[in-house]
Design a binder for these strands. Sequence first.
DNA 1: GTCTATATGCAGATAGAC
DNA 2: GTCTATCTGCATATAGAC
Lengths: 193, 193
Amino acid sequence: MTAEARRILIEAAQELYAANGVAATTPREVLARSGVGQGSLYHHFPSKRDLAAAAVAQTVDDTLGSAAATLDGADEPERRIADYLERPRAATAGCRVGRLTADPVVMGDETLRGEVSRYFAELIELVARAFTEQGLDAAAARDRATTAVAVIQGGYVLSRALGDDAAMRAAVRGLLELLEPAPTGPDERSRHE
Amino acid sequence: MTAEARRILIEAAQELYAANGVAATTPREVLARSGVGQGSLYHHFPSKRDLAAAAVAQTVDDTLGSAAATLDGADEPERRIADYLERPRAATAGCRVGRLTADPVVMGDETLRGEVSRYFAELIELVARAFTEQGLDAAAARDRATTAVAVIQGGYVLSRALGDDAAMRAAVRGLLELLEPAPTGPDERSRHE
DNA sequence: GTCTATATGCAGATAGAC
DNA sequence: GTCTATCTGCATATAGAC
């Protein structure tokens, strides 16, 4: 059971951070949600930052792993990119990682900031690889991957701001429309009329 | 001088919110930065939310006005859109409005959330108008405008996460590359080799 | 490892004089 | 309108027993 409380605390913190961020999540809330006692919390995590470091690293690993499962798949690169962009998302909840860029506790701590940076560096790299497989040169693939990841992050911001998942879907549709090669078959035309 | 303290307080709050968000900005900090006394603060703004409502509304008005100046200009729509996308931005600082979508105080207050929502609704509308002028139908223009605004918001998130303004520039380059019509002249080809 | 008790300091005001 | 004094409650731990 010794590692159990630790794991439970991390999970509770991850959920609270996803909802309210790190700065706004208090030790009391973590205790209440986890059901663990105060002594255990401060035994496993001497300070709030220690808990945050563990929970954020876990969230980054989880999220990157799930993105890699789609982007490193066996399908055609076009398909993998589209699958990644169109993946169902709780957009109005915001991105668990992206929202941390606005969190003063995260940005004020080198370790936490490093986790957020690692997430996006690796995610852009994953997407860029797929664009490279499509035949783009390295520089163009990197730019386009940055654009694609930005559309998702911006989609989260817009969905949250407007209180509607439709914003994320519109942003993704707009990008996919631009990514599609000019229609080759006559029956592919005029999707918009 | 009666309205003077009020204005000074709003300006100080705007700057602090841009740096740290609303939730993390304390009355003490606003007092210190503004040089105004505590009595004045609570005279003009009975609660923290009242100050936030005034300061956020001001920021939204300022920022929308500056975007409209570019997007409603007299140039060709292509040019106005490119100018808006390429406008110099302190990207690692984050978007003053977009970052508020991760702020628990803002999202927990209907008035404040309404200001953020108004900002993005109007901004998307401004951009969509330019795309419509380019000849896109209303639905396609709206999607593409949402994509464009998402690229900027995502560019802020990525620049902040990676600690580098280059991420914003890459995201914008990637989008502009997609927006450019297929090269018509032979000397326009192979920009990337 | 986990518990309960206790401590410090600041957030976010309120009160009443000037 | 602005000032200073004061107040309540919670964030964030620390201490020491079990």
